Amino acid sequence: MSIQVVLLPGLLCDDAVWVDQREALSRIADCHVPDYGMRRSIADMVDHVLASVDASTLLVAGHSMGGRVALEIARRAPDRVAALALLDTGYEARDAGEAGAKEQAARFALLDTARAKGMRAMGEAWTPGMVHPSRLASEVYESILKMIERSTPEKFEAQIRALLDRPDATPVLAEIRCPTVLVCGTEDRWSPLSRHEEMQARMREATLHAIETCGHMSTMERPEAVTGILVEWAERAVRA
């Protein structure tokens, strides 16, 4: 049986978001961090990810937007997914009412900033709420800004459109049969802990880990804690 760990990055993230976890998990199985390129829907991202891995058994972990990709992979290829990890993410579609319109306007306002002033300037406006306040002047925060700066407004627009049209994964949660871990920073203001508690309540085999003193970027903010959880998760799946 061939096994591969798939580490799915979130909005404007690249393999830097998984550096610590990838190093540790690669001792257990081959690791793959996909690049979504210019794909403009969650479905297209899933097609790309599934086409890029050839192992018969997948251990799938997704952070933020990557968690939504992971849920769709679990729906589309349940026989291949032996374990699932969802970090700082969500499961519902965009609200159809005023809240949804507000989300769309806020996302496109950031895109306008990226086009007018560059990705770094957009990141400086966007990212303060993504980390724990104690990390605003840290090397981790600078690493996040540099990661955003490596991307482009065109890629940002493609991923915004994918998120705005995201599918409702509520029915998927009840269908998942593989062991699942949920991970969330206790100070995550983008995908709060309460949302992960809702997800856990809808799932059969999910364990929730709350990471203290941590915002949305848990894999980078508290790498040792997150890596420990994911190593145990992967080792258990490989032994099964």
Rank of each mutant, 00 (worst) to 15 (best):
R222D: 01
V226P: 07
A234E: 07
R222I: 04
H132L: 08
I3H: 12
V172L: 04
D112F: 02
D15H: 14
A206Q: 04
T219R: 01
A77W: 05
V6C: 05
A77Y: 06
C184V: 13
A109T: 04
S191L: 02
E197I: 08
E235G: 08
P34Y: 04
S151F: 01
E92S: 13
D47N: 14
L164Y: 00
W126V: 08
T89F: 01
S218R: 02
L145S: 06
M38F: 15
A61R: 06
A169I: 01
G185C: 01
A61I: 10
E92Q: 15
M220D: 00
P9G: 09
A74Q: 00
S64N: 03
H196G: 05
V131Y: 02
L25V: 10
A162N: 04
E175K: 11
A16E: 11
P167F: 06
L11V: 12
D79Y: 09
R150C: 10
L86N: 03
Q159D: 11
G37N: 11
E232F: 06
P133A: 14
E198C: 09
V6M: 03
D44C: 10
V81G: 07
A201S: 11
A70W: 00
G62T: 03
V49K: 03
L50G: 06
L8T: 10
G129V: 13
D54R: 10
T207E: 14
L84N: 03
V140L: 10
E224Y: 00
F156V: 05
T127G: 11
I42A: 00
H63D: 04
V69E: 01
R22D: 05
R120Y: 05
E224R: 12
I42K: 00
E224T: 09
F108Y: 15
L11T: 14
L86Y: 08
D79E: 14
S143N: 08
S26T: 15
V81I: 06
V46N: 06
A77S: 12
R236T: 12
C178G: 13
A210H: 03
D14M: 02
T152S: 15
D30E: 15
E224S: 09
T207M: 11
H48E: 13
R177S: 15
A137S: 14
A51R: 12
L110S: 09
I73M: 12
D20Q: 13
A137K: 14
H216V: 03
R75K: 14
V17R: 00
A174Y: 04
G215H: 09
E175T: 12
A125V: 09
G185E: 00
R22P: 06
A43M: 07
R236P: 02
S134R: 12
R189Q: 15
E139M: 09
L208H: 00
S138Q: 02
R107Y: 05
V60C: 01
P223M: 07
E205S: 15
G62E: 01
E187A: 14
H132G: 09
W233G: 08
F156W: 10
M220E: 01
T170E: 12
A137C: 10
V231T: 15
L173M: 05
M220C: 06
G97P: 00
H63V: 06
Y36E: 12
G185F: 02
R75Y: 08
F108N: 11
R189T: 14
A114R: 05
R150V: 04
V238F: 10
L163I: 13
C178A: 13
R22F: 01
A137R: 13
V238P: 05
I148E: 10
